[in-house]
Design a protein around this nucleic acid. Structure first.
Lengths: 339, 339
DNA sequence: TGATATTATGACACCGGTGTCAGATTAGGA
DNA sequence: TCCTAATCTGACACCGGTGTCATAATATCA
């Protein structure tokens, strides 16, 4: 046998027509039990596998989803945000569970990442994942919608289509962090992140945080804020600049764990003790969080559930079913950095 | 325009035949420059994308590689070894660079992971990645070879086909670790890992380590070894059992960073100070390593290069070119856990 | 001007399945 | 025994491209 076996080969050996082979292998009720058995038998012997290209071509669907991970262009090429890596793991598993394959692709946010996966019938739908400047993305989202591309999005809200977004309740998560700091009596708080509409996720975290403070009659000092993207480096520099400007605080809320870890490094360097002098709370609960010193108090996003929801919603979209706006509950994980 | 545009639509609007469209879009020298331009023009307007299924079906290749990540079944479902996540990142990038798509799939090592990707023409070749008991895999490797499946493997050596393996020089890495500990004067060393042929990577690390000690006339004490798989938990328990058995040592070499991190936890718990009482060296240089307390001295595997080599070798294999056995140089990263 | 080479294009088979339709065979009922 | 229904199977068109071959149109040269 040279080359791979085709359904015609099976047909030949099983003494039936190719049509029957196709039906038998898909367990169509139309074929006789005995025939079905024989066909399966031969197929197994010849190690036959359906040619997905042919099958997909005919049925016009691919049983494949594509994950586009777009990263902040300023972040280091070699280091991928561990939070997304965790998401990737759960998405992969969720896909497998649903019988879908997963194409993975990293995109720099500048490039033409509406990519051709769906248009070229490589994938039935897209999952978009990434931090970064969402204003850049809105026009691309629009293009996708115009082209009727099926996609879901982590975190980023898509104008007029909240059903396309799966997100952690960032606002609620920010509140959790605030209430925790308030409970420990640390009301003089700094915020490191990006409280603009360029990063809606960070912004929502900040809003929730601020509102929880306001509810207790404590106003956040706008000066005690510094911008940072979600990298350790960025968190480090932002915090250093606060310290350099002689800004004082006894607690710090970072918009992500990576930022928090960078912040802790800056604090340590300035001989400011965590948690004694400053309580630190992060966001994400990446794997590293429990290993840093001190272990990081953080708001957990349930990546397993998130991956599952992304896949579920996308499949519903593909099947034309109704999809609801999806918000996942955050959970506070208290560790040494804040007690 | 209902549905996606096909090459016939382009042909219609450009006033040429479908054949010419196909040629023009692939920039065949056979088509007239003016025609080519017009066809591209129309294609762009209709947002036409080549149907990969049709194209792949005809050309009998997919421009896709599949990454099969098989994990130790005992490891926690939700936590993926960060080392592999890093590899995944670099493999993805390497694929993109070569113009290949990447299918990602997690396999539990028990399942039928010779998977159908290649047989079903979903992928042109496989990349296998995973820790675990390699004896389990050998028969599966054999099946793959028998079926002429193109694949490469990280770490695991495939009998008689060393060209199919890309690996870090684990033996050399073990030596690096040993020489470092010897240089710091800590010759009474424990080893946590698996020094059997069930995990050839760990075994090689141990061998290199042992040989370097022997070269200095120091023999390792066989009793100061404990088995562990590559998880924090496992490293923790293995180290605890050594301590519980009253086994003393002033340095410790862990077969992987995760194990080392678990070991440090066990040591701390037993009030044994790192690095004062015990120097610890790990292997992998996962992202966490620099954040633990104390920062972990470790042997770095260059994941970027590794991913690139895996992809390069696999593509060579697919193209029928000659592939050499590939061994990547390790590098010692000295941090606080051993000085 | 006629013969030949060159260039550009269209017609058509083909890749390997899936779905439809028609027809053969057997069973069931009168 | 004949007719209709139920069951099973094969022939065939089709999905949307790619590659081969034939041929028309134009250029080249004697």
């Amino acid at each position: 046998m040279k080359g791979k076996a085709t359904s015609f080969d099976i047909a030949h050996y099983a003494g039936v027509s190719q049509s029957t082979v196709s039906r038998a292998l898909r367990n169509s009720p139309l074929v006789n039990e005995e025939t079905r058995r024989r066909v399966h038998e031969v197929a197994k012997q010849l190690n036959y596998k359906v040619d997905k290209n042919a099958s997909n071509l005919r049925t016009q669907q691919s049983s494949t989803l594509a994950l586009l991970l777009f990263e902040d262009p300023t972040s280091d090429e070699s280091q991928i945000n561990p939070f997304f890596l965790a998401m990737l793991g759960s998405i992969t598993r969720a896909c497998a569970k649903e019988g879908y394959d997963l194409l993975v692709s990293f995109q720099s946010s500048s490039s033409d990442w509406q990519a051709d996966y769906e248009d070229s019938h490589r994938a039935d739908g897209l999952i978009l994942l990434g931090y970064g400047d969402y204003l850049d993305y809105q026009p691309k989202f629009k293009t996708l919608i115009d082209q009727h591309t099926k996609f879901v999005c982590w975190g980023a809200s898509v104008d007029n289509r909240p059903d396309l977004t799966v997100s952690c309740d960032n606002y609620g998560g920010g509140k959790l962090a605030a209430e925790h700091l308030l409970a420990t009596g640390r009301t003089d708080c700094a915020f490191i992140g990006d409280a603009s509409d360029h990063s809606p996720e960070f912004f929502a975290r900040y809003q929730g945080f601020k509102d929880a403070f306001l509810a207790k009659g404590v106003a956040l000092n706008e000066r005690k804020m510094a911008n940072a993207i979600s990298t350790e480096e960025s968190g480090y520099h932002a915090t250093r600049s606060l310290i350099a400007n002689n800004i004082r605080f006894n607690s710090l809320f970072a918009a992500s764990d990576l930022i928090a870890i960078g912040a802790i490094r800056a604090l340590k360097e300035a001989k400011i003790k965590v948690p004694d002098d400053v309580h630190v709370v992060g966001f994400d609960n990446i794997a590293v969080a429990s290993f840093v010193n001190p272990p990081l108090t953080t708001v957990q996003q349930d990546t397993t559930l998130a991956g599952q929801m992304l896949v579920d919603n996308l499949l519903k979209l593909i099947r034309g079913e109704d999809v609801k706006n999806t918000l996942l509950p955050p959970r506070l994980i208290i560790r040494g950095s804040s007690v």
